[in-house]
């Protein structure tokens, strides 16, 4: 696999699976306004996944069926952070997950701005334009939820549960050396991990939320990036692909504007 191809799968799969989880809140969010805002973020993330999958189609000859609908669930390389089922009503889980992901996403996109792979570099700005709202949204909710004791405890529980999985965002695969060497990404995952920790740990601590010591964290067994996943992912994959298989259409429908 080409280094750019490997990087694109990480990008696209993260966004797809995160979006799928976000849409679970539609109609179920705490208020109409918060419902609309999170749905918007879900659509953005689906849109980003589509943009990166499109690139895999254009540059590496895949089609949508290969990439999403008929791909073996063991071949998806998203972080386990995005696949975990959200406990019912746990808005704090979604806020924390969004925050941990969005900071990592900003750092990753910055490291792709000057990618040697021009087709990736060209698309980064489009994605960054939407990620700004996502971070502001997550940060605003974090600030407010941590302002009272009960909801801060929920934030704390979500951090305890999700932080070990967030670390899998930075797990390298056998392609990591080539990705950096070829300049597809201008910073290594180890560097991105340091930058991320430097940002999220003090930010959470300033809100009186304790963050586990990264070195002491017991890593979940599935790493996501190597195709190993939690049961939550396999159940989710089964759920969202079942209708596709039931219908047996010739190809997935495209609904694109002229300038898409």
């Amino acid at each position: 696999m080409e280094p750019a191809e490997a990087e694109l799968f990480r990008l696209a799969d993260d966004e797809l699976v995160l979006a799928e989880r976000y849409t679970e809140w539609q109609i179920f969010a705490p208020t109409p306004e918060s419902d609309l805002a999170l749905a918007n973020i879900a659509q953005d993330e689906f849109g980003h996944a589509r943009l990166w999958y499109d690139l895999l189609e254009d540059e590496f000859g895949y089609d949508e069926a290969d990439l999403v609908w008929e791909r073996d669930p063991d071949d998806f390389v998203h972080s386990t952070l995005v696949e975990l089922e959200t406990p019912e009503g746990d808005w704090a889980d979604t806020v924390v997950r969004g925050y941990l992901y969005d900071v990592a996403e900003r750092l990753r996109l910055e490291a792709l701005e000057d990618s040697s792979y021009a087709a990736i570099a060209d698309r980064v700005a489009k994605v960054q334009g939407e990620e700004e709202y996502h971070r502001e949204h997550a940060q605003s909710w974090l600030d407010r939820l941590t302002a009272s004791d009960e909801s801060r405890e929920r934030v704390q529980a979500a951090v305890d549960r999700l932080f070990p999985h967030a670390l899998t965002l930075f797990v390298p695969t056998e392609h990591e050396h080539d990705i950096v060497e070829a300049g597809v990404r201008t910073r290594s995952l180890a560097e991105l991990r340091e930058d991320w920790l430097d940002e999220v740990v003090p930010a959470l601590e300033s809100l009186d939320v304790e963050v586990p010591e990264p070195g002491a964290v017991v890593r979940p067994e599935p790493l996501g990036r190597d195709g190993s996943h939690t049961d939550d992912w396999f159940a989710l994959h089964e759920e969202f692909t079942a209708t596709y298989h039931e219908l047996g259409f010739d190809e997935p429908a495209e609904l694109r504007g002229e300038n898409a």
Binding site: E20, T23, Q26, Q43, F46, G47, A49, R50, Y53, E64, V68, W69, E239, F240, A242, T243, Y244, L247, F249, P252, A253, E254, L255, R256
Partner: peptide
């Protein structure tokens, strides 16, 4: 949304 058989349908 969960059932939609293509990415674009899902978005719609």
């Amino acid at each position: 949304t969960r059932m939609a058989p293509s990415l674009d349908r899902k978005l719609a």
